[in-house]
Structure formats: C-alpha cells, structure tokens
Amino acid sequence: MTTLTATDLSKTYLLRSGLRFSRLQAVQEVSFELSPGRTLALVGQSGSGKSTIAKLLMQLERPTSGTLLLDGAPIGRRGRALADYRHEVQMVFQDPFASLNPYHSIGHHLLRPLLLHGRATARTAPGAAKELLERVNLPADDAFMERRPHELSGGQRQRVAIARALAPGPSVLVADEPVSMLDVSVRLGVLNLLARLQQEEDLAMLYITHDLATARHFSDEIMVMLRGRVIEHGPADEVILSPREEFTRRLLAAAPEPATNQRFLAEAQRRGVPMPDHLAHQEDLG
C-alpha cells in the first residue's frame, strides 16, 4: 500500500524564440494525493499541464519547485532508491506510437519488466506475459507475442502499453489517456480491469483523460486543469453534476450528446417517435 503526495508542484519551461527567451509556466502550485485503492481523474484543457504532471511524478522531469513524497518520505531520485521508486510507480504514456520500442517484440515488452522486477522466473515469465495480454483483451498466443509494435493497430498498442505498466505489479499507476483509442466495449473492459486491480491490490491511480463520462464513473475524485493550474477538485459526482467553475461548465456543455442535439431532436419530431433509449440495449451486450 503506497501513497504518493504532491505538494505545490510547479514546472516552468524556458522557451526560446530566435534570440528571445520567455518562460512558460506549464504547472503552477498543484497539490494532490494518490492513495491506495483510489483513482484521481485529471481532466482539463489541452496543453494545461496534465502530461507535465505525469512526467514530474515519473521523474522524467524535475519540478521547478514543490515536493513529492512516497509514503511520507521524499522520493528517491537516484541509484537504488530511484530503482525502487520505478518499481512502485508505473506509467502508461499518452502516445502508444512513441512509447513502444519498434525493434522489440510484444513479448519482449512484457517479459522484460516481469523479469527485471522479479515478478516471474525465466520459466514462468511467458505464461505471466500471456496472462497480462489476456487481461487487456488481446490474443494471448505465441504469434501475437512475436509481433512488433508497428504490426498492431493503435488500440492494440495502447493495450500492450497498459499490460507493460501492470507487469511489475506497481502500487501507483499514472495513466495518461490510456484508453483514448479503444472502442467503448473494450474501453470499459480495460477500465473495469483497472478498477478491479484497485480493489484487489490497492492500486493508487492517476487517470488523465478527456473523456468526462469515464472520469466520472471510474474515479473517486476529479481535478480540472486550466493553464497550468488546478481550478476545481472534488468528488467525481460533485464536479460533474454541480461544477463550480465556468471552465468546467464549458467542458461539460461541449461533451457530445446526441440525445440533446438539435439534429436528432428535430429528426425525432419528423419521424414522430420518441428519442431512442440506447442504454436499454445493454442486455444485447451478451
């Protein structure tokens, strides 16, 4: 069980334009806690600093100021302590086209962390890797293990990235848009898998997403970012159902919703039928 606490995190980038320099405050004084068995969703404006926060948590960037504590102690930044940290804290990157190594097979992507973090032996690793593939709804056979990333579709790559992050058995998972390229049924399956891991293994999770509906249904709390700052932070239902900030309301109003769209309301009238209730078809899911 591990808690990751961020206090007043800030990150400033120096931008160069010709001979002139300027500062870009990508993240400004952001504080939050990732606790065992809970999910914090991070939503907000594109370019508002979400991935930068993820990079700070993963120690891929150094904060300009602020602190990160793992179970109350300052996080290890080098050597053995850093290796231990990497064992505990795993990440799914936003871009599955960049984050998988084109020279390595899918099997290698999964076997390596399993062995490196002592989760399996040379004998048990292939079985463990297949189990991971199965969990993210990918074919768990040798042919698939031998494929390389460019031989997979976008959503398949995304699922490999998730399986890889789960391989070391982390206690904190930072997931940056982990399901953006998955069709809904697979998307819900993967999110349910993460929810189950959370309950069974007390995983703490930061879920970065633009999908407000899954942010609501799969998280305990939601943080909303705008221009480097967290402008709203509260229980998931509260943020979605009674948002306090204007920007949050704008986001909610902009989420596509055919049921309230003029085009389909007009069509219902033209057809003389009520608006369809597609959720009623969920039994078809079979």
């Binding site: 349910n192 899954t214 969920q282 078809d284």
Partner: peptide
C-alpha cells in the same frame, strides 16, 4: 446497437459500467 448502448452517460445514472458493478467476465 451495442456501440450505441455502451456509452456511459455523463450526467445520467451510471448504468452497467459502474466500477462496483464490474463482473470478472467483463474484463
């Protein structure tokens, strides 16, 4: 139909995909 039916509603009730409501088969 299945696609249309599996979008969690933003403001409505949580439907089938509530976190608590997962079933092992679904995953």
């Amino acid at each position: 139909r299945r696609l249309l039916g599996s979008f969690p509603s933003l403001t409505g009730s949580t439907g089938d995909f509530v976190r608590a409501g997962y079933s092992p088969e679904e995953t």
